[in-house]
Design a protein around this nucleic acid. Structure first.
Lengths: 333, 333
DNA sequence: AAGTTGCACTTAATCGATTAAGCTTTTATA
DNA sequence: TATAAAAGCTTAATCGATTAAGTGCAACTT
């Protein structure tokens, strides 16, 4: 059975495609189509199982009702959850979401943006890569509605939705201090992304205020050699002369590998060492160790991103907004 | 800056859009376009930052170079990983992947299929819901290329890629038996999906062969009340007169909650009770408990699905294939 | 010289839906 | 009764790219 088009319906009912289009789009009033004909058309459409061709529609009206979601890694729970909520919410407004990965590669982000642009998506929600300003800037110049999510570039005035990473990190570190830790390490990625820098500052400031900051307790992880770097860092922190009695893990991936390593070294949590992690993880409930963590408001982040993106799409005037949500420190784990 | 079209380039260079189209599609040979003009066109296209409109292109050539991936839950690691690999692989063939959730709702699957069809996707990779035969059947009748993934309907001759669930389950249960368990429970969803039934049969047959099958050791979980059902089931299995000394968990979601409950009941693994889980989970490496698990070949599943889908798209003749991969039992965890 | 062939493009139809503008016919108004 | 207004539909242009079928011209053949 070939695809049914407006034309097929028009022929069957004996009217023009214009009439059919008007009726099926609920514009009988403004199009002044008679009740009987309208009914006939609707019936025929149903009978023939008509489904509009959205490519044609999009081409004509200049919108595709599609938004692009570009994340760094869909297999990361945090992003997968974000994707889930964004999709659920966007659907309510009639938008289809195309999810794409960049694997933290700026080059890939460039390619992906080009592909999606040529698919005429109406807007972009992007978790940008570190060196990605260039592509994001170009995209903005080209007039595409954009919302950055989870990360942003202070230099570029562009809408973004993030959590207050500084605050979350500060509170997390404070918890370790209040638990009595004196020797607190940080495991964090080595990059210039502001959200990472914010987390670093949060940690640093909390320790400075307590008067126990030691620069060499900060261990930076390279994205290309995550596993080895984490192992080495944990080994250094946990097995030195003055071993750490607390560690703040700045991302979920780092947390997982870091804690695994601690367990391998037979460190007991919290007896030998305390930890606080960024991002909640199902695995934490899996052990009896207390693993306080910073829970990001994922559903809200997704919803806000969709809301302001749609606003941009509708309004066309893009007054950049900075939206900052607060994370929750979960201490009962 | 408005969008650049073929026409803009044509005007600038002083040729027809046909010429531009031929050149930019690399058909100068067959289109017999002069070298100089071709060069000029390519230059102009680059200068003007031309990006083809894929809606128009798709409308004209009847393909969108897009495939739809419909999964039950993108926030489930198993599906998120599948999605990741499918996307990576499909990209190599120039396909964009649209990922969508159904949340195990057949109604939603129907809606989602309609939406995607109207977006003219070239083919579907679907993890179908339990009662979804109807929609899948209709989709097939409409002539859409389809590959079912992870699950299938024995009644409908349609391409699918699955693991040998029976075998995996049999082996997993056998491991428990060989470890000395006499009283082995099963936690599994209550539904008629063949892959679930296969897992059940694998468990049953292994126990029958060992002569220790007891029907009431099978606990069925309702999807709508997962948490409560799992709790109750674990409580029944672990705390009865003859408490279970082994449990086979039939899915990753069930495993997580099930083991959490066992820990809450202060059961020691493996001293008090042994477990085997379907699907590998990062969390397992998190504890020192030995948790053998069945690892599905996710990348291969994804690749196979893409391969046979593309074949269908190209060939148009859809000889249904049944592709069965083998899972690996990981015992060193 | 007439016809054939090859080259370098152009014309124009097409995909399917939308919509401003136009054309009848009916109904309301003066 | 003449005229304006409203109702009910159709025409045709349009979105941007593709491509079969031309067109015109030079070169080559016999």
């Amino acid at each position: 059975m070939a695809k049914i088009s407006l034309k097929d319906i028009a022929e069957k009912v004996g009217v023009s495609t214009a009439t059919v289009s008007l009726v099926l789009n609920g514009k009988e009033k403004t199009g002044r189509i008679g009740k009987e004909i309208a009914e006939k058309i609707r019936l025929a459409a149903k009978e023939m199982n008509y489904e509009p061709n959205n490519l044609a529609r999009g081409l004509r009206i200049g919108r595709s009702n599609t938004i692009a979601l570009i994340v760094a890694d869909i297999s990361n729970t945090f992003f997968a959850n974000l994707a889930f909520h964004i999709q659920e919410y966007a659907e309510k407004f009639g938008y289809t979401v195309i999810i794409t990965n960049t694997n933290e590669s700026t080059e890939k982000m460039g390619k992906v943006i080009a592909t999606l642009k040529s698919r005429q998506v109406d807007g972009f929600i992007i978790v940008p890569t570190e060196e990605g300003e260039k592509y994001i800037g170009e995209l903005q110049k080209a007039g595409s509605p954009i919302v950055l999510l989870d990360r942003y570039f202070p230099g570029i005035p562009i809408c973004h939705v993030v959590v207050n990473n500084y605050h979350a990190s500060y509170e997390g570190t404070k918890l370790l201090i209040e638990s009595g830790c004196k020797n607190i390490g940080l495991l964090i990625y080595k990059n210039q992304l502001p959200h990472i820098q914010d987390r670093k500052r949060g940690y640093t400031d909390a320790l400075l205020k307590a008067g126990i900051f030691q620069p060499d307790m900060i261990k930076e992880i390279h994205y290309e050699s995550i596993q080895e770097d984490i192992m080495r860092s944990i080994d250094e922190l946990a097995q030195g002369e003055h071993p750490a009695d607390g560690i703040f893990f700045a991302t979920n991936t780092i947390s997982m590998s870091g804690i695994k390593r601690l367990l391998q070294l037979n460190k007991r949590i919290p007896e030998d060492i305390r930890v606080v992690c960024f991002d909640k993880n199902e695995a934490f409930e899996f052990s009896k160790m207390p693993i306080p963590c910073i829970q990001q408001p994922i559903p809200e982040m997704g919803r806000m991103a969709v809301d302001i993106l749609i606003e941009q799409i509708k309004e066309k005037k893009a007054a950049p907004v900075h939206i900052e949500l607060y994370a929750t420190l979960l201490n009962d784990m």
